[in-house]
Amino acid sequence: MSGSAFLGNAEELAAQIPDGALLALPPDYSLVAMEVVRALIRKKARGLRLLGVPILGLSADLLIGAGCVAEVETSAVSLGEAGLAPRFTDAVEKKSLLVRDATCPAIHCALQAAEKGVPFMPLAGIGGSDLVKERKDWKVQGDVVLVPAIRPDVALFHARWADEAGNVWVGRRRELATVAHASRLNLVTFEEKKPGDMLDDELLAPGVISSIYISALAHAPRGAWPLGMPGLYGADDLHVSQYAKAARTREGFLKYLEEWILTPRKSTSPA
């Protein structure tokens, strides 16, 4: 595909993500395309390999609990103030989920290597960690560790704006630019469509990811809910903490899925 294609909705974007894909997702504070995450659960995605850029939160916990995920590479999975990610924790303790533990700067390095098209990137300072012993793919060379490039099959995220040229604006969340440069396919939902081309605007251009990288787009207003979109709406902390409580048990989690994800009329933000 050359340039970006506008699709009808989040469901159509989710349909672009094949089972078994290496799927890169941002943390809860960095523009998660939650509407597509819910659509992945509805379409019964299977065998996904998630990459946390560099950590994961609610999106991963939902996908893991719903049985969509085979393995995870991440520096952490956490619901922030709402505590541990309950379905992730349960799956790991029951040995039904494979985790490749990493540390944040190693994941950033691996994606930077991919965006530059080089095989690895050196990282200093982590020599004392047992992660280095566990990660046979990381090569110790003197004081640095060589972290191999990671090229995700798909990166999925949410943007404030898309324009007619297919560019998207993510502002200061530049880890999304790095992962977009590194990934084969980039799928993006957006809050609002802007007329024209944001690259013609000196003030907007620095926050833009060019359409060169964007494979497909879909309009999803409040598409990050119950997470936030800085400058537009905040995270729904009460909802996330209610999820954290409900998902402590498998039954509570399934009830949440039924109420908020599988039942279409309730599957989007109440606002």
């Binding site: 956490s78 541990l84 300072g125 992660l131």
Partner: peptide, 14 residues
């Protein structure tokens, strides 16, 4: 028991 993960600690501590 499983905890969230190492975050950036492996690097920041060093």
């Amino acid at each position: 028991k499983r905890f969230p993960g190492s975050f950036g600690s492996a690097y920041m501590y060093g």
